[in-house]
Amino acid sequence: MIEVAGLGKRFRSLTAVRDLEFVVGDGEIFGILGPNGAGKTTTVRMLAGLIAPSAGRARINGHELGIDSQRIRAVTGILTESPGLHDKLTARQNLGYYGRLYGLRGRELQAAVERYLGVVGITDAADRRVGGFSKGMRQKVAIARALLHEPDVLYLDEPTSALDPSAAKSIRDFVATLRDAGRSIIVCTHNLDEAERLCDRIGIMRGTLLALDTPARLRRGNGNATVRVDLVGARRPESFMDLMASLPFVTAARPLDGTLRVEVRDPRGDNPELVRALVEAGARITGVSEEAATLEQVYLDLVGEAGERDARRVAA
């Protein structure tokens, strides 16, 4: 479990991360989304015990950050943004080296190396120098390295970048099995589709967390759902606007391209009432569907607003 309270990091006059608050439970995949320079890598480096926070505290599997950093590193696996492999060594030698740094020895080390060479599918290339590997193969070796010591907590920075679609899927499936094994996993990514598929909850970050929720709730944005009502017949959607304003469960409505877009809080409960009211008012409805914002829209809105705020703060 990862518990973060008020965590922040300053580099001289630059505040890279501030006021982070979140908990990642056992068996949960937590995604961090954010633009370049949003503080994702700094956050992971702090949580991995690589750099000291300037403010706040965090507990990783019960170990206090800044006090038990060595223990934190022992229970943590990290896939860094760049694979950072030793090019002159083979894949097997790379893994063997890191296994020893994590305290594995003898048969235990050998078994772990063989297992994870197999898991990422590079057993056949295990005795080739990684300097000659493709980007995807290097990424696989780096993933194997992060898992070698069976860490309880895993940080994955862009885990499927440079991988082809089938390799990316196999890595995603494998990460999902790690969640099922009860590990706490943080995934930093720019890939919104991947975040949505893989993560149980997502934090959108720009210096601090701008939003944190499940992908479905994030897509809802302000908590309302937009219901699209397709109409036919002589009456234009604009003619129902007074009716919409009178319905207590409707928070907003607008006509668009011959349809009505109606915002309601609880589409499952409110839609039957909405349809009944429209039909009673003479509407001929051909379809009702819930329109969710894409995660991309939500992300761009949040990050854009935060960017404007930052710019105003700098200008002031």
Partner: peptide, 14 residues
Amino acid sequence: QARSLEPQLATPVE
């Protein structure tokens, strides 16, 4: 150049 220090520093090695 290989950016390989970070993964090493992330292990329990002092």
